[in-house]
């Protein structure tokens, strides 16, 4: 059950074109300005409120990350990293807080790897969404994702992740996390506008001494519909392991790319080859040959 108000750009495990008449749609993006984030976790609460999710009460692991990781019930998690930044002779402690969750890649590895038709869709506005009722629980989306985002529920064996509040966006609302953020660290709008906003902010940050500030919109996955403004854009790994140059694994591309149609063709060719061989060479019948010899 995709959202009928949004048309599709791509559909998992489908070889024919997706419905795309209503494609005159602006691509959207969520911009997370990490330099404005205070780590209050209001976005986590708003996410669980809107999406009717309830995380189990966990344990304190000695970090501020709570819950400690993304789960089927926690589609976004603040990740806290304490880093020492060298400034000439001195080292300065910095607390980097990154709101983790689905990046809504333009070239989504999850969708590419998924074998169930329509279980993963990409709407015309760029949002990548999971349709749990078509999900078969195989875990291929995890294999395909370069950001380690999808989680499979132990209860129902379905994969879950941030939907970028596709239900809200389809009726002209901003995602719940954007709505609730008290510092304005999260913005939502067209991808173009968000890129412009990010550029302004980057200029601001550079002026204030963050020489390596920049926008995180990785090209390896065709750009993303969730972008970050990072103070240290030259070292994304500082932000709880945000990959510097993410891309869908080559083995996954190979697996879901040319290999399979080629293999199917091979199987068909082998069967056809057998038929042709039989027609040309005929049966290899030792008993009949022996009988013929005896008769002659």
């Amino acid at each position: 059950m995709g959202l009928q108000t949004l048309d599709l750009k791509q559909r998992s495990a489908t070889t024919t074109p997706s419905p795309q008449a209503k494609s005159n749609v602006t691509e959207v993006a969520k911009l997370i300005d990490v330099s404005k984030c205070i780590g209050c976790k209001a976005c986590q609460v708003a996410c669980s409120e809107w999406n009717d999710l309830k995380e189990e009460i966990g344990f304190n692991h000695g970090t501020y990350d709570n819950p400690r990781d993304l789960t089927e019930n926690s589609w976004t998690v603040m990740r806290f990293s304490e880093v020492e930044m060298k400034e000439g002779e001195e080292a300065r402690l910095e607390w980097l807080i990154r709101k983790d969750g689905c990046m809504h890649c333009a070239d989504p590895g999850c969708l590419k790897a998924c074998p169930a038709p329509g279980a993963i869709v990409q709407y015309a506005n760029g949002i990548v969404d999971f349709n749990q009722e078509s999900c078969i629980g195989c875990g291929n989306c995890i294999t395909g994702c370069p950001f380690n985002v999808p989680r499979i529920s132990q209860k129902d064996s379905k994969a879950y992740k941030c939907s970028l509040c596709s239900d809200r966006v389809s009726v002209g609302l901003e995602p719940a996390c954007v709505k609730t953020c008290p510092t304005g660290a999260i913005s939502f709008g067209s991808k173009e506008d968000m890129t412009d906003l990010a550029e302004e902010r980057v200029v601001d940050l550079v002026e204030r001494g963050y020489k390596t500030a920049g926008l995180y919109d990785p090209k390896g996955v065709g750009g993303t519909h969730v972008m970050y403004v990072l103070k240290h854009a030259d070292q994304p790994m500082l932000y709880a392991g945000l990959p510097a140059d993410p891309s869908v694994a080559f083995s996954v591309e190979l697996w879901k790319g040319g290999l399979k149609p080629l293999a199917l063709l091979g199987m068909g060719a082998a069967m056809l080859g057998g038929l042709l061989h039989y027609l040309k060479v005929g049966p290899n019948d030792a008993d009949a040959e022996e009988k013929e010899k005896e008769a002659s």
Binding site: M267, A270, M271, G274, H277, Y278, V281, P283, N284, D285, A286, D287, A288
Partner: peptide
């Protein structure tokens, strides 16, 4: 496929 075809081709 080769295995099955061989069994069909080689009578007996």
């Amino acid at each position: 496929i080769v295995h099955i075809y061989a069994a069909i081709w080689i009578k007996g």
